[in-house]
Design a protein around this nucleic acid. Structure first.
Length: 106
DNA sequence: CGACTGACTCGAT
DNA sequence: TATCGAGCCAGTC
């Protein structure tokens, strides 16, 4: 188990693709949903390396505090276009915008 | 093989 | 609220 299987990245892309418009998910949550709870860092890596051709909604993934990705200010605009407000300090209000996947089931 | 890095997280201060 | 340190793990040098 010392090697990330191909399915991990595929899972990450699939999960991120399911995040509804106007909702966000943390790296940790994506890692858990992918089946690798300890791989939050790898999720971040996966998104950073993700080819643009996939049209990923990686702007809907933030860290557990609601902090946005560094060196990528465009992410803020993308989120605001979807109605995701940011606190005065540039943090996503996770209590309000975090996606609970059980919402998707029904 | 060891040291360093980073789109992470959590608890303590 | 902001910072710090420890734990975390694949990739890079």
């Amino acid at each position: 188990m010392s090697h990330i299987p191909e399915t991990f990245y595929a899972q990450v892309y699939a999960i991120v693709g399911q995040i509804p418009c106007g909702r966000v998910l943390s790296y940790k949550s994506v890692a858990i949903l992918a089946g690798y709870p300890q791989y939050a860092r790898q999720v971040g890596r996966a998104l950073r390396l993700a080819p643009n051709g996939l049209k990923l909604l990686c702007h809907r993934v933030v860290n557990s505090c609601g902090r946005l990705a560094p060196h990528w200010n465009e992410q803020q605009e993308l989120l605001q276009q979807e109605g995701v407000w940011l606190t005065p300090r540039g943090l996503v209000d996770m209590k309000r915008f975090a996606w609970r996947y059980d919402e998707a089931i029904e």
